[in-house]
């Protein structure tokens, strides 16, 4: 179907974006391709150092998966902030990717996990890095004849610290004004490396090179935290819309990153402990 007339067909998975588009009358395609019965794409697999998540896996399944809780708890954090329980029961990470919103809440975590997206058509298959997958708001490199079949990434390092923070106008079913995901490796109070991604501050989710650069080798203290958070704010290139002004978004990026790193410094942040998710 996709191979023949891909451009006229819209895949639908959990439908939590597609149904809204239909209702708003903004869906261009005339036909839907229902993926919801593709049970073979519904999996979470451990594959050596890799974790593979099938395109039909819902947020709820991610949240409940022992594998994800052990090796990629940042994705559990993110999944819990998506919409509400009802949305988490239906929505999928692949759908979040396919929708390509700069405010998508699973995507910053996938950026810092340096995930790869598998795209398959009837007679080809390819993998692209998450950073190359998005071209802009609602634009991706997916060709009309391709489906997203899988997202994969390396397990998080034991002992690494992580966070996903989202700022919305309310506590449930809120679109992010800004969001930030980070993974941080500390040794002896020094930051080995930081991977930091920001949502809703640019046409796609972005990594923050300035913040990451400032973090490398720095002591984790109030001064460095401030410098890193300011770096993140500098890298943000937000717009003004109904959910917030550009100026405010830059300040909010600072706030989110500052608070997240401060929590790690003060021992109340979250950390990867193989087998279970642990605190500080």
């Amino acid at each position: 179907m996709l191979a023949e007339r891909g451009a006229a067909v819209r895949p639908i998975s959990g439908g939590t974006d597609v149904m809204v588009m239909i209702k708003d009358g903004v869906l261009k395609e005339k036909e839907l391709l229902d993926l919801s019965r593709l049970e073979e794409l519904r999996y979470i697999k451990e594959d050596g150092e890799l974790i593979r998540i099938g395109a039909r896996t819902t947020y709820r399944e991610v949240e409940r998966s022992p594998v994800i809780n052990a090796y990629a708890p940042i994705l559990v954090e993110a999944s819990k902030t998506i919409g509400s329980v009802q949305i988490q029961n239906l929505g999928t990470i692949a759908g979040n990717l396919g929708n390509a919103s700069p405010a998508a809440d699973s995507v910053p975590s996938l950026y810092v996990l340096e995930a790869r997206v598998k795209l398959a058509s009837v007679n080809s298959e390819r993998e692209v890095g998450i950073g190359e997958f998005f071209l802009g708001p609602r634009k991706t490199v997916r060709r009309p004849d391709e489906l997203i079949t899988e997202v994969s990434f390396r397990k998080m390092e034991p002992g690494s610290h992580f966070f996903f923070k989202k700022l919305g106008l309310r506590s449930a079913n809120a679109i992010s004004i800004v969001s930030a995901a980070g993974i941080l490796k500390l040794s002896n109070g020094k930051i080995d490396w930081l991977r930091l991604a920001l949502g809703a501050v640019a046409p796609t989710v972005i990594r923050s090179p300035t913040a990451e650069e400032r973090a490398r080798g720095a002591e984790l203290n109030e001064d460095s935290i401030r410098a890193i958070a300011e770096g993140a704010s500098t890298d943000a290139r937000p717009i003004t819309d109904i959910r917030g002004t550009a100026e405010y978004r830059k300040k909010a990026v600072f706030g989110l990153v500052y608070e997240a790193l401060y929590e790690i410094m003060s021992g109340s942040g979250k950390r990867v402990v193989f087998g279970l998710e642990g605190r500080g």
Binding site: S84, L169, R170, S171, A172, N173, I175, I242
Partner: peptide, 11 residues
Amino acid sequence: FTTYVVPTARD
């Protein structure tokens, strides 16, 4: 309800 945001039970 997407653009005019009202508090939810959680709020």
